[in-house]
């Protein structure tokens, strides 16, 4: 038996989504909230959406809050989402790394909230197209809180609606093949990506060291002390001359002063400050 979502629960979810994403859920969309949150409730072993809302209201864990907001706001993650961190990768970061590393020395990249894998595979495609030996030289670690998202990243399969979202057609035909109604990333690129579950708010397992970290649109869900803690842990798994990319609305400034903001492409990147 599942319990229907009471009006107060619905209002609470609306306020949460509005606060976190500025997206307004119109009244009368209770069924939409139910349909979108039901899988999350089931995943947590809860009988229904009402129980899920009750639990998160009593104890708002950032990870769960984020999952709820995501379930209600994002349909598909875009490829090349906010393109700047990707053009910066091929335009600035990779040339700098090539100059600083021995030829053929492995390059390690972390996609730290990989969702269904679009970011990790965007990086893989860009490097495969621009760096000789990328498929053997580049290792991409993709992590996400959600096991479902990690499984999806591992599978490297995307629906028609997903490949429609900002994936350049020449890249689609170069790196994907059709499998039934879906598109599958080529085995060579899939081998560049290792996906696993990871909670950024908890202790990190042995990782890295990374040359580049993409930690985009994650910090916004944490309170200031957690943000600082996450940034500190990220710095520990980065190489001293590494590059960190945050979401367009995120910064280390005023949170953790051990990073230097540098212009990178049309946007900014953050680099560990020397001596910190």
């Amino acid at each position: 038996m599942t319990t229907a979502l009471a009006t107060s629960g619905f209002d609470w979810v609306c306020q949460l989504v509005r606060r976190e994403s500025a997206i307004v859920l119109a009244p009368g969309k209770e069924y939409l909230v139910e349909a979108r949150l039901m899988p999350l409730a089931r995943q947590l072993g809860l009988p229904g959406v009402a129980e899920l809302v009750e639990r998160v209201r009593a104890r708002p864990e950032p990870a769960l809050v984020r999952s709820i907001v995501e379930a209600l706001t994002t349909n598909e993650t875009s490829w090349f989402r906010d393109g700047d961190p990707f053009t910066a990768l091929t335009g600035t970061v990779v040339p700098a790394l090539q100059a600083a590393r021995r030829p053929g020395e492995p390059i390690s990249i972390w996609s730290a909230a990989c969702s269904s894998g679009q970011e990790a595979y965007t990086i893989a495609m860009l490097l495969a197209d621009s760096l000789p030996n990328a498929t053997s030289r580049v290792r991409i670690t993709a992590t996400d809180l959600s096991r479902a998202m990690v499984d999806r990243t591992r599978a490297g399969r995307f629906s028609q609606l997903e490949v429609n979202r900002g994936l350049p057609a020449p890249m689609l035909v170069r790196h994907f093949s059709r499998v039934g109604a879906e598109w599958e990333i080529s085995p060579a690129l899939r081998q560049m990506v290792t996906a696993s579950e990871l909670n950024l708010a908890g202790p990190l397992p042995r990782l890295g060291p990374f040359d580049v970290v993409y930690l985009r649109n994650v910090l916004i869900y944490f309170d200031p002390p957690t943000k600082r803690e996450v940034l500190r842990k990220v710095r520990q798994v980065m190489r001293p001359d590494g590059w960190l990319f945050l979401g367009a609305a995120e910064t280390t400034l005023g949170v953790d002063d051990s990073w230097e903001r540098v212009p990178c492409g049309r946007g900014s990147a953050y680099r560990p400050m020397k001596g910190k």
Binding site: K29, L32, A35, S159, L161, A181
Partner: peptide, 13 residues
């Protein structure tokens, strides 16, 4: 396939 067509064209909810 029909689900994708409906959600994109007819209305997501």
């Amino acid at each position: 396939v029909a689900g994708e067509v409906w959600s994109a064209l007819v209305g997501e909810e």
